[in-house]
Design a protein around this nucleic acid. Structure first.
Lengths: 243, 243
DNA sequence: TTCTAGACATTGGATGTCCCATCTCCTGTA
DNA sequence: TACAGGAGATGGGACATCCAATGTCTAGAA
């Protein structure tokens, strides 16, 4: 006879498990077939037939895999195993940040904290591996930033480029991607809040200071200046959130 | 009753942009309505009507949002704004890692690098904020780990718990979530490779060493022992990948 | 009062249809 | 021969409409 189950219904997640299982099956299929980045996937119909589920169901999973950066979908042509691409995380994290800003902006601050920890913690290793070539790239970025500042243009592109190149010596794509995601999320949140007045010269000078410390291979100074850079960002965010 | 007569823009917009736009519209709708974590979302049909797209299309976007951890879908009941939850990232990153292991396992190594940078870089701040209560929690975890090791059980749970509690003082949920994701991805990759022989005692001792340094508030020592801990993990991974 | 069975709302999934984006290749013209 | 343009094939995008599965809630029975 049926006993009233004391168990907190585990079936509450059963549906998610099934759709998650389908995603996993598709990923396993890629691995089993030895497909590599850029290779073509089976068509939606083929997958639908092969996996024994409807095409709509397959599509839902495929969209998720696309969002996770696993595959790339090209309308009218086909689907392909995607190169590393975390851009999809941006929207999710941005949403989180904006949601949190309605309270006290905690999560947005947490984001800055993580960026700060990652960047100031890794700058030492990056300086160790820095070559003249990397330094020249960095300098070129700074000059472009300065030129943009003089023209009154936004520094977004150059700012992102600077931070990306700063850690290029580490040769860690995952790290670069992660940092890029965090940077973009910060930018989007900042945009959504409405940008206050920006001091382009100050911003450029901050980056020059960091560049200088890096060029002199002064790890401690570089780390400290990065810390201060982020302190400034944090303050600005707090200002905007309070208004 | 179809309100579909709304003529859309000339089909200049790429498909990805359109589906991404739909996801954004749903997220904006949440923000506009002031929904908070745990609140119920409109039903699929309502969204379909409101956004002027078919229910299947809405569902694809909803699944993506679920995968990004934005919403939680409960079969037969409804959809809700989800609490922070990065577990979905795990599958995507795991896939990346396994894909890379077919070549030289670079990405899996990069993952360890990022973990190492994050953890050894942040241990100092964590020690600054460490309270007796946190320390007691940490000790409890270690004792549980030791007990498990004596019984020959896997240490997975306790290992993860240890690293989670180590950084609890920072009070940064995003960070905890990220570390958890990385930890799980590492574990899954390791599992997929087939675990070699594991030395439970050694593993436990490593963690005790770290605990000791933390308990003594010796930041430098803690950071160094964490570094060595990850060096060990990296070596183990290299061994398995080479075979 | 307590427990159970069923109604209901809502998501899960399948199928069929049509639309439209992209690529390939063939043909016609210079 | 070389190149431009268009027709057709391929394949994803969107939608309507079923029915199934499942969690919740309530009415009714013990």
């Amino acid at each position: 006879m049926a006993i009233a189950s004391q168990e907190v219904s585990p079936a509450r997640f059963s549906a998610q498990l099934r759709s998650h299982a389908l995603q996993t099956r598709i990923m396993d299929l890629i691995l089993e077939r030895g497909l590599d980045v850029g290779d073509a996937m089976p068509t939606e119909s083929e997958l639908s037939a092969e996996l024994g589920v409807g095409r709509n169901t397959v599509r839902e999973s495929l969209k998720v895999l696309q969002a996770l950066g696993v595959i790339e979908i090209r309308h009218g042509f086909g689907m392909f195993v995607a190169p590393n691409n975390f851009s999809a995380l941006v929207s999710g994290l941005t949403f989180r940040g904006r949601l949190s800003l309605r309270h006290k902006g905690e999560e947005a601050m947490e984001l800055i904290d993580v960026r700060q920890a990652l960047e100031s913690g890794l700058i030492g290793s990056a300086i160790d591996l820095l070559t003249d070539e990397h330094l020249a790239d960095l300098r070129a970025t700074m000059e472009a930033m300065e030129a943009a500042a003089k023209n009154g243009e936004h520094l977004y592109v150059h700012d992102a480029e600077f931070h990306r190149r700063l850690y290029a010596p580490l040769n860690n794509e995952l790290l670069i991607n992660l940092m890029d995601v965090f940077w973009q999320v910060y930018r989007k949140i900042h945009q959504a809040l409405g940008t206050g007045p920006v001091n382009l010269e100050q911003q450029t000078q901050d980056h020059w200071d960091i560049y200088e410390a890096v060029a002199n291979k002064d790890k401690a100074l570089a780390s400290e200046r990065l810390q201060r850079h982020f302190d400034g960002i944090r303050l600005k965010l707090k200002d905007v959130a309070a208004s």
